[in-house]
Lab assay of single mutants.
Amino acid sequence: MEVRTIKVFTTVDNINLHTQVVDMSMTYGQQFGPTYLDGADVTKIKPHNSHEGKTFYVLPNDDTLRVEAFEYYHTTDPSFLGRYMSALNHTKKWKYPQVNGLTSIKWADNNCYLATALLTLQQIELKFNPPALQDAYYRARAGEAANFCALILAYCNKTVGELGDVRETMSYLFQHANLDSCKRVLNVVCKTCGQQQTTLKGVEAVMYMGTLSYEQFKKGVQIPCTCGKQATKYLVQQESPFVMMSAPPAQYELKHGTFTCASEYTGNYQCGHYKHITSKETLYCIDGALLTKSSEYKGPITDVFYKENSYTTTIK
Protein backbone atom coordinates (compact mmCIF):
# COMPACT_ATOMS: atom_id res chain seq x y z
CA MET A 1 0.00 0.00 0.00
CA GLU A 2 1.47 3.33 -1.03
CA VAL A 3 1.69 6.19 1.47
CA ARG A 4 -0.30 9.16 0.19
CA THR A 5 1.47 12.45 0.83
CA ILE A 6 1.12 16.15 0.10
CA LYS A 7 3.64 18.95 0.29
CA VAL A 8 3.04 21.80 2.75
CA PHE A 9 5.11 24.51 4.44
CA THR A 10 5.64 24.98 8.17
CA THR A 11 6.65 28.27 9.76
CA VAL A 12 6.83 30.18 13.03
CA ASP A 13 7.05 33.65 11.44
CA ASN A 14 5.47 33.40 7.95
CA ILE A 15 8.84 34.52 6.53
CA ASN A 16 10.98 31.40 6.80
CA LEU A 17 8.94 28.60 5.22
CA HIS A 18 10.08 24.99 5.71
CA THR A 19 9.02 22.44 3.07
CA GLN A 20 7.41 19.32 4.55
CA VAL A 21 6.10 16.15 2.95
CA VAL A 22 3.20 15.01 5.15
CA ASP A 23 1.61 11.60 5.44
CA MET A 24 -2.13 11.91 4.77
CA SER A 25 -3.00 8.98 7.05
CA MET A 26 -1.66 10.67 10.20
CA THR A 27 -2.84 13.86 11.93
CA TYR A 28 -0.79 17.06 11.83
CA GLY A 29 -0.33 16.69 15.58
CA GLN A 30 1.30 13.27 15.16
CA GLN A 31 3.69 14.77 12.62
CA PHE A 32 4.41 18.28 13.97
CA GLY A 33 2.79 18.69 17.38
CA PRO A 34 0.38 21.67 17.75
CA THR A 35 -0.40 23.00 14.24
CA TYR A 36 -2.43 26.01 13.06
CA LEU A 37 -3.89 27.08 9.73
CA ASP A 38 -5.02 30.74 9.62
CA GLY A 39 -5.26 30.68 13.41
CA ALA A 40 -7.45 27.56 13.45
CA ASP A 41 -6.09 24.62 15.45
CA VAL A 42 -5.69 21.69 13.00
CA THR A 43 -3.61 19.52 15.35
CA LYS A 44 -6.18 16.70 15.42
CA ILE A 45 -6.95 16.92 11.68
CA LYS A 46 -5.45 14.73 8.94
CA PRO A 47 -3.97 16.40 5.84
CA HIS A 48 -6.40 16.99 2.99
CA ASN A 49 -5.74 17.47 -0.76
CA SER A 50 -6.87 21.08 -0.43
CA HIS A 51 -3.98 21.68 2.01
CA GLU A 52 -1.36 21.17 -0.73
CA GLY A 53 1.09 24.10 -0.75
CA LYS A 54 -0.51 25.81 2.27
CA THR A 55 1.49 27.31 5.13
CA PHE A 56 0.97 26.00 8.66
CA TYR A 57 2.15 27.58 11.88
CA VAL A 58 3.89 25.17 14.24
CA LEU A 59 5.42 25.72 17.67
CA PRO A 60 9.17 26.42 17.81
CA ASN A 61 10.17 22.90 18.82
CA ASP A 62 13.69 22.75 17.37
CA ASP A 63 16.72 25.06 17.48
CA THR A 64 16.19 26.51 13.99
CA LEU A 65 12.57 27.41 14.73
CA ARG A 66 13.43 28.72 18.18
CA VAL A 67 15.94 31.17 16.69
CA GLU A 68 13.47 32.24 13.99
CA ALA A 69 10.69 32.74 16.56
CA PHE A 70 12.92 34.76 18.88
CA GLU A 71 14.18 37.00 16.07
CA TYR A 72 10.63 37.72 14.93
CA TYR A 73 8.67 37.98 18.19
CA HIS A 74 11.48 38.83 20.68
CA THR A 75 10.09 36.37 23.22
CA THR A 76 11.12 32.93 24.43
CA ASP A 77 7.75 32.22 26.09
CA PRO A 78 6.86 28.69 24.85
CA SER A 79 3.12 29.45 25.09
CA PHE A 80 3.33 32.66 23.02
CA LEU A 81 2.69 31.29 19.52
CA GLY A 82 -0.25 29.13 20.60
CA ARG A 83 -1.84 32.09 22.38
CA TYR A 84 -1.25 34.30 19.33
CA MET A 85 -2.91 31.72 17.06
CA SER A 86 -5.97 31.19 19.26
CA ALA A 87 -6.44 34.98 19.47
CA LEU A 88 -6.04 35.27 15.68
CA ASN A 89 -8.80 32.70 15.22
CA HIS A 90 -11.17 35.31 16.75
CA THR A 91 -9.62 38.61 15.59
CA LYS A 92 -9.70 37.49 11.92
CA LYS A 93 -13.52 37.45 12.24
CA TRP A 94 -13.71 41.02 13.57
CA LYS A 95 -14.50 43.96 11.29
CA TYR A 96 -11.96 46.78 10.94
CA PRO A 97 -13.73 49.85 9.51
CA GLN A 98 -11.89 52.99 8.45
CA VAL A 99 -13.29 55.75 10.66
CA ASN A 100 -12.18 59.32 10.01
CA GLY A 101 -9.01 58.08 8.28
CA LEU A 102 -8.09 55.65 11.07
CA THR A 103 -8.46 51.87 11.35
CA SER A 104 -10.93 51.04 14.13
CA ILE A 105 -12.56 47.80 15.33
CA LYS A 106 -16.29 47.15 15.26
CA TRP A 107 -17.41 46.24 18.77
CA ALA A 108 -17.23 42.50 19.63
CA ASP A 109 -15.93 40.38 22.54
CA ASN A 110 -15.26 43.37 24.87
CA ASN A 111 -12.66 44.65 22.39
CA CYS A 112 -13.32 48.38 23.01
CA TYR A 113 -10.01 48.75 24.90
CA LEU A 114 -8.16 47.26 21.90
CA ALA A 115 -9.97 49.60 19.50
CA THR A 116 -8.95 52.58 21.64
CA ALA A 117 -5.33 51.40 21.83
CA LEU A 118 -5.25 50.73 18.06
CA LEU A 119 -6.67 54.19 17.27
CA THR A 120 -4.16 55.84 19.62
CA LEU A 121 -1.18 53.99 18.14
CA GLN A 122 -1.99 55.42 14.71
CA GLN A 123 -1.66 58.96 16.07
CA ILE A 124 1.53 58.80 18.12
CA GLU A 125 5.03 58.22 16.79
CA LEU A 126 6.15 54.75 17.81
CA LYS A 127 8.45 52.10 16.36
CA PHE A 128 8.21 48.53 17.62
CA ASN A 129 11.29 46.39 18.26
CA PRO A 130 9.89 42.94 17.40
CA PRO A 131 9.55 42.74 13.58
CA ALA A 132 6.29 40.82 14.19
CA LEU A 133 4.68 43.86 15.84
CA GLN A 134 6.09 46.38 13.37
CA ASP A 135 4.97 44.33 10.32
CA ALA A 136 1.49 43.77 11.78
CA TYR A 137 1.26 47.46 12.73
CA TYR A 138 1.87 48.54 9.11
CA ARG A 139 -0.84 46.12 7.96
CA ALA A 140 -3.20 47.43 10.65
CA ARG A 141 -2.75 51.01 9.46
CA ALA A 142 -3.74 49.79 5.98
CA GLY A 143 -6.92 48.27 7.42
CA GLU A 144 -5.85 44.65 8.04
CA ALA A 145 -5.56 44.66 11.81
CA ALA A 146 -6.38 41.03 12.74
CA ASN A 147 -2.73 40.00 13.26
CA PHE A 148 -1.86 43.15 15.16
CA CYS A 149 -4.80 42.73 17.57
CA ALA A 150 -3.95 39.05 18.09
CA LEU A 151 -0.31 39.95 18.80
CA ILE A 152 -1.34 42.64 21.30
CA LEU A 153 -3.44 40.04 23.13
CA ALA A 154 -0.55 37.56 23.13
CA TYR A 155 2.03 40.11 24.36
CA CYS A 156 -0.39 41.32 27.07
CA ASN A 157 -1.22 37.76 28.16
CA LYS A 158 -4.90 38.42 27.47
CA THR A 159 -7.55 36.21 25.92
CA VAL A 160 -10.34 37.34 23.58
CA GLY A 161 -13.44 38.41 25.53
CA GLU A 162 -11.55 39.42 28.67
CA LEU A 163 -11.99 43.02 29.83
CA GLY A 164 -8.90 45.10 29.25
CA ASP A 165 -7.34 48.37 30.32
CA VAL A 166 -5.92 50.85 27.80
CA ARG A 167 -3.14 52.09 30.10
CA GLU A 168 -2.01 48.55 30.92
CA THR A 169 -2.13 47.58 27.23
CA MET A 170 -0.10 50.63 26.19
CA SER A 171 2.41 49.94 28.94
CA TYR A 172 2.97 46.38 27.62
CA LEU A 173 3.32 47.69 24.06
CA PHE A 174 5.71 50.47 25.09
CA GLN A 175 7.97 47.79 26.58
CA HIS A 176 8.27 46.37 23.04
CA ALA A 177 8.82 49.77 21.42
CA ASN A 178 11.99 51.74 20.80
CA LEU A 179 11.87 54.40 23.50
CA ASP A 180 15.65 54.42 24.08
CA SER A 181 15.99 58.13 23.36
CA CYS A 182 13.08 59.11 25.64
CA LYS A 183 14.01 60.97 28.79
CA ARG A 184 12.13 62.80 31.56
CA VAL A 185 13.57 64.91 34.38
CA LEU A 186 11.30 65.61 37.36
CA ASN A 187 11.79 67.90 40.33
CA VAL A 188 10.09 67.40 43.69
CA VAL A 189 10.05 70.43 45.99
CA CYS A 190 9.12 70.17 49.68
CA LYS A 191 9.28 73.14 52.09
CA THR A 192 10.74 70.84 54.77
CA CYS A 193 12.97 68.46 52.78
CA GLY A 194 14.20 70.72 50.00
CA GLN A 195 14.26 69.52 46.39
CA GLN A 196 15.13 66.31 44.63
CA GLN A 197 15.60 65.66 40.92
CA THR A 198 14.90 62.33 39.23
CA THR A 199 15.70 61.25 35.68
CA LEU A 200 13.50 58.62 34.02
CA LYS A 201 14.24 56.74 30.80
CA GLY A 202 12.24 54.57 28.40
CA VAL A 203 8.64 53.62 29.26
CA GLU A 204 8.67 55.58 32.53
CA ALA A 205 9.69 58.69 30.62
CA VAL A 206 6.49 58.76 28.52
CA MET A 207 3.80 57.65 31.03
CA TYR A 208 2.47 59.49 34.07
CA MET A 209 -0.33 58.42 36.42
CA GLY A 210 -2.01 61.07 38.56
CA THR A 211 -3.11 63.91 36.30
CA LEU A 212 -4.50 64.21 32.77
CA SER A 213 -3.24 67.73 32.11
CA TYR A 214 0.23 68.00 30.60
CA GLU A 215 0.14 71.76 31.27
CA GLN A 216 -0.57 71.10 34.95
CA PHE A 217 2.32 68.61 35.04
CA LYS A 218 4.63 71.34 33.71
CA LYS A 219 3.39 73.83 36.33
CA GLY A 220 3.43 71.32 39.18
CA VAL A 221 1.20 68.70 40.79
CA GLN A 222 0.68 68.18 44.52
CA ILE A 223 2.03 64.90 45.90
CA PRO A 224 2.52 63.69 49.49
CA CYS A 225 6.18 63.94 50.55
CA THR A 226 7.87 61.12 52.51
CA CYS A 227 7.94 63.51 55.51
CA GLY A 228 4.12 63.66 55.47
CA LYS A 229 3.80 67.24 54.18
CA GLN A 230 2.60 68.23 50.71
CA ALA A 231 5.26 68.54 48.02
CA THR A 232 5.13 69.84 44.44
CA LYS A 233 6.34 67.69 41.57
CA TYR A 234 6.95 69.34 38.21
CA LEU A 235 8.44 68.53 34.83
CA VAL A 236 11.93 69.95 34.28
CA GLN A 237 12.73 68.32 30.95
CA GLN A 238 10.95 66.06 28.46
CA GLU A 239 12.53 64.44 25.39
CA SER A 240 10.05 62.18 23.56
CA PRO A 241 7.72 62.18 20.53
CA PHE A 242 4.63 62.00 22.80
CA VAL A 243 3.51 61.78 26.43
CA MET A 244 0.67 59.77 27.95
CA MET A 245 -1.08 61.28 30.98
CA SER A 246 -3.46 59.06 32.96
CA ALA A 247 -5.72 59.28 35.99
CA PRO A 248 -8.71 57.34 37.34
CA PRO A 249 -11.71 58.19 35.10
CA ALA A 250 -13.21 61.55 36.09
CA GLN A 251 -15.16 64.36 34.43
CA TYR A 252 -12.64 66.28 32.38
CA GLU A 253 -12.93 68.94 29.72
CA LEU A 254 -10.96 68.39 26.53
CA LYS A 255 -10.18 71.58 24.63
CA HIS A 256 -9.81 71.38 20.87
CA GLY A 257 -6.22 71.73 19.67
CA THR A 258 -4.60 71.17 23.07
CA PHE A 259 -4.14 67.38 22.85
CA THR A 260 -3.76 64.58 20.28
CA CYS A 261 -6.24 61.96 21.48
CA ALA A 262 -7.79 60.56 24.65
CA SER A 263 -9.54 57.52 26.16
CA GLU A 264 -12.98 57.89 27.71
CA TYR A 265 -14.06 55.22 30.19
CA THR A 266 -17.67 54.85 31.34
CA GLY A 267 -18.66 52.32 33.97
CA ASN A 268 -16.91 50.75 36.92
CA TYR A 269 -13.92 48.48 37.46
CA GLN A 270 -15.85 45.25 36.76
CA CYS A 271 -17.71 46.45 33.74
CA GLY A 272 -17.21 49.47 31.55
CA HIS A 273 -16.76 50.79 28.05
CA TYR A 274 -14.00 52.72 26.27
CA LYS A 275 -14.43 55.35 23.57
CA HIS A 276 -11.73 57.28 21.75
CA ILE A 277 -11.65 61.08 21.42
CA THR A 278 -9.43 62.62 18.76
CA SER A 279 -8.63 66.26 18.07
CA LYS A 280 -8.57 67.01 14.32
CA GLU A 281 -10.15 70.11 12.74
CA THR A 282 -12.78 69.57 15.43
CA LEU A 283 -13.25 66.93 18.16
CA TYR A 284 -14.34 63.45 17.10
CA CYS A 285 -15.52 60.58 19.26
CA ILE A 286 -14.92 57.10 17.83
CA ASP A 287 -16.86 54.23 19.38
CA GLY A 288 -16.06 51.08 17.40
CA ALA A 289 -17.52 51.80 13.95
CA LEU A 290 -19.47 54.88 15.12
CA LEU A 291 -18.29 58.46 14.68
CA THR A 292 -19.69 61.61 16.29
CA LYS A 293 -18.25 65.11 16.18
CA SER A 294 -18.44 68.06 18.53
CA SER A 295 -16.67 71.36 19.10
CA GLU A 296 -16.28 70.76 22.83
CA TYR A 297 -16.16 67.71 25.04
CA LYS A 298 -16.60 66.91 28.71
CA GLY A 299 -16.71 63.36 30.02
CA PRO A 300 -15.07 60.59 32.06
CA ILE A 301 -11.53 60.70 30.65
CA THR A 302 -8.79 58.36 31.86
CA ASP A 303 -5.87 58.86 29.40
CA VAL A 304 -4.77 61.86 27.34
CA PHE A 305 -1.99 61.73 24.74
CA TYR A 306 0.00 64.80 23.72
CA LYS A 307 2.53 65.32 20.94
CA GLU A 308 5.93 66.40 22.24
CA ASN A 309 9.46 66.74 20.98
CA SER A 310 11.57 68.58 23.48
CA TYR A 311 10.55 70.66 26.50
CA THR A 312 12.61 72.44 29.15
CA THR A 313 11.06 74.26 32.11
CA THR A 314 11.35 78.00 32.68
CA ILE A 315 10.73 77.53 36.43
CA LYS A 316 13.81 78.74 38.27
Rank of each mutant, 00 (worst) to 15 (best):
V99D: 00
F259D: 06
V22R: 01
Y297F: 06
K54R: 13
N157D: 13
Q238C: 02
C193N: 01
H51P: 00
T75E: 12
D135N: 13
M207P: 04
Y28W: 08
F305M: 07
Q197D: 06
T75Y: 04
T314E: 15
T192D: 14
K219G: 09
N14P: 07
T302G: 06
L163N: 15
H276M: 04
C227S: 02
A136I: 01
L118V: 07
I286Y: 08
E168I: 05
C261W: 00
Q238A: 05
V185F: 04
P78L: 09
A136L: 01
G267K: 13
K298C: 14
M26P: 04
T120S: 15
A247I: 11
V3H: 13
L153F: 04
G143D: 00
K158P: 02
I286V: 15
V236I: 09
Q20P: 02
Q222I: 13
Q270V: 04
K7Y: 12
R139P: 04
A40H: 10
I45E: 15
N268G: 10
G228T: 04
I45P: 02
Y57R: 03
K255M: 08
T278Q: 13
Y138C: 15
G39I: 03
D63C: 10
M85Q: 07
L81Y: 15
M26G: 06
Y172Q: 15
G161S: 02
K46W: 15
E168Q: 11
Q122R: 01
K44W: 04
Q195I: 13
L133A: 02
G39E: 09
Q195C: 15
L283W: 03
S171D: 00
V42C: 10
V42S: 05
S181G: 09
A150H: 06
A117R: 02
V21L: 13
N268C: 07
Q20F: 09
E239L: 09
H48Q: 12
M209D: 15
L102S: 07
K183P: 02
K127L: 04
T55S: 10
F259M: 05
Q123E: 10
V58D: 00
V8M: 10
M207Y: 03
V236E: 06
F56M: 09
R141E: 09
A136K: 01
G53A: 12
V67R: 14
L37P: 01
S79T: 14
H90K: 10
T5H: 15
T35G: 02
R66N: 15
E264F: 04
G39A: 12
S240T: 02
E253F: 07
E204P: 07
Q238M: 04
M245L: 07
S104A: 04
V189D: 10
K158D: 05
C193G: 03
E239K: 13
T91W: 04
G288W: 01
R139W: 08
L17I: 08
C149M: 06
K219P: 05
Q30C: 14
K183R: 10
S213Y: 01
K44S: 12
K298N: 08
E71N: 15
V304D: 06
L133V: 01
D303Y: 02
G82V: 11
R66Y: 10
N89P: 07
A150D: 00
Q238E: 04
G39L: 04
A145N: 03
G220S: 05
Y265D: 01
Y172V: 10
T76A: 14
V166N: 11
F148Q: 00
G164C: 07
T11N: 04
S86F: 03
Y36L: 01
D165C: 13
A247D: 06
P47K: 00
C112S: 15
P47R: 01
I15A: 13
G202F: 01
L126M: 14
L133Y: 01
L126R: 01
H18Q: 08
F9T: 06
G33M: 02
K46A: 10
G272V: 09
G194L: 05
C190R: 03
G220H: 04
L186G: 02
T116N: 15
H273K: 08
G161L: 03
R167V: 02
A140C: 07
F259Q: 04
K233H: 10
K95I: 15
A289E: 14
Q123K: 02
T258Y: 07
I15W: 08
K307D: 10
V8F: 00
Y138D: 14
T35N: 01
F9G: 03
M209V: 11
E125T: 09
G82H: 13
K218G: 02
K191R: 14
A289S: 15
A145G: 07
I315F: 12
R66W: 07
T91G: 00
K298R: 09
T292L: 08
N129A: 08
F9C: 08
C261R: 01
E296D: 13
P241I: 00
T199S: 09
P78S: 13
E215K: 06
D62Y: 07
K201V: 15
S263W: 01
V188Y: 07
S295Y: 10
D23A: 04
A262K: 03
T226W: 07
F70A: 13
F242M: 06
N129K: 07
W107M: 15
G299R: 07
E308D: 09
W94H: 00
F259T: 05
L37T: 08
T64N: 11
V8Q: 02
G29M: 08
L88V: 06
T312Q: 13
T159G: 12
Y96P: 06
D77W: 00
I223N: 06
W107Q: 15
S25W: 11
N110V: 01
M244W: 12
T278H: 04
Y72N: 14
L153N: 00
A40D: 14
G288H: 04
N309W: 10
T64R: 12
H273N: 06
D38F: 10
Y265P: 08
I152T: 15
K93E: 06
G29Q: 08
S246K: 05
V221E: 09
R141Y: 03
N16P: 03
L59A: 06
L121T: 09
F128V: 01
T11G: 00
A250P: 03
C182P: 03
T120E: 05
